[in-house]
Simulated assay, not measured.
Amino acid sequence: MGEKKSVGYHLPTGKAIDTLMSKQTVTIIGGGLAGCEAAWQISRMGVPVHLHEMKPKRFSPAHEMESLAELVCSNSLRSDDPSSAVGLLKEEMRKFSSLTMTTAMEHRVPAGKALAVDRNAFSLAISKKLEESPLIQISRDEVTSLPPEETAPCIVASGPLTSESLTQSLMTITGKKLAFYDAIAPIVEADSLDMEIVYRKSRYDSGPGDYLNCPMDREEYQYFIEQLSTAQTVPLQGHEEQKYFEGCLPIEIMCARGENTPRFGPMKPVGLPDPRTGKDPYAVVQLRSENLQCSHYNMVGFQTKMTY
């Protein structure tokens, strides 16, 4: 058998190793998932970090919480199955003692093979861990321009909703403006569900039945699609461009591509037989727990720009 190798960090090179040797403070702009993870990993190597986050002095159009690492759309971090690409990435992150992965596991909610979290508890926990680190200084201020190139190393992790002033500064380097298309992930109250119709089941019985399923027959589905096709939507805002990520399309955009598109996407019924009939419904809406109390549920795959 070959010699076992311990899992650890790859040795940094160039300017990065100079920073480690000198213990020069690293500046990080943005307290989202990327910025928080970067701050955590750098501080674990004994290097001081100065993390800048503009909340709560200023909020982007999509953010609401004052805490760091806020999830603004779905509470799912996608598959946790190591046989998938995103699941394998999570395994790699765990081997590096990832703050995101550790905290996600601490505040995990039932989601089958996916890793989903109680978003409020998750965000508050990450904030607390970073605030308690002696090597991480957190400034609640807006950075309006990039620091001079000759100063300490800087990581820009401000995301697509970067403030206009910092965006202009970034454009002097990139020549391009950041794009963002906002959509909401609808959440329903558990008390509003008719559990005589809704049933708990994982697709193909591949899990403990973490998802609630709302079945539709053909007539109900067609009526639903008709309503989707005529629903009012929120007009684009100044910070948005209508560029879609194919893996996360708004439900009304799927509908516009064809009546059966949702039925072969998030409303796919196969492997989810209705216990009342023993057969797969014509279509199904799946619900995933939004919090640890299971008082609210997220409509899986139902990102939308519809008004409400």
Rank of each mutant, 00 (worst) to 15 (best):
L11I: 08
E196A: 08
V156A: 09
I253Y: 13
E92F: 06
A114K: 05
T261D: 12
C294F: 05
G301D: 06
L11W: 02
P235A: 03
A152H: 11
V117W: 05
D81N: 14
R276K: 15
E219G: 03
F180I: 09
A121M: 12
A114E: 12
P134H: 02
R200S: 15
N213G: 10
S165R: 13
Q222D: 11
E196M: 03
G31L: 06
L236M: 10
P186Y: 00
I173N: 07
P61V: 00
G159R: 10
S169M: 05
S206L: 12
V117N: 06
H63F: 03
F245A: 13
E220L: 06
S202V: 01
E91F: 05
G32T: 10
I155S: 07
A190E: 14
P269D: 07
A38G: 03
G207P: 03
E91T: 11
F59K: 11
D81I: 02
F180L: 10
I251R: 05
Q227H: 02
G209L: 08
D217A: 02
M267L: 14
I42W: 04
L193S: 04
S98T: 03
A62K: 07
S295Y: 00
Y221M: 06
Q242C: 13
H296T: 13
M101A: 08
K15C: 01
G271P: 01
S60Y: 09
L166M: 09
G301W: 02
L161N: 12
D182V: 07
L212R: 03
D274V: 05
C214E: 01
A62M: 08
D118W: 04
I225S: 06
L292N: 12
L166V: 03
L228F: 00
T277V: 04
T102Q: 15
P186G: 05
G30N: 09
P82V: 00
Q232C: 06
L212D: 03
T19S: 08
Y297Q: 02
L161C: 12
P235R: 07
G2A: 09
A231E: 07
D182R: 09
A256S: 15
L115P: 13
T172Y: 03
M299H: 01
G159V: 09
A62Y: 02
I17E: 11
T277F: 01
G14F: 00
E189N: 14
S98L: 07
Y282W: 10
P235I: 02
C214R: 05
L88P: 03
L146H: 01
E259Y: 02
K177C: 03
I42A: 04
V7C: 12
L170M: 15
V198S: 04
F245R: 15
I197M: 09
P82R: 01
K128N: 14
L130Y: 06
E131I: 02
R263E: 11
V198Q: 01
Y211G: 09
I42L: 11
C73N: 11
L51R: 10
M171H: 00
Y221F: 10
V285A: 12
K5V: 15
N213Y: 08
M299C: 15
A16Y: 07
T233F: 00
K128D: 14
I126M: 14
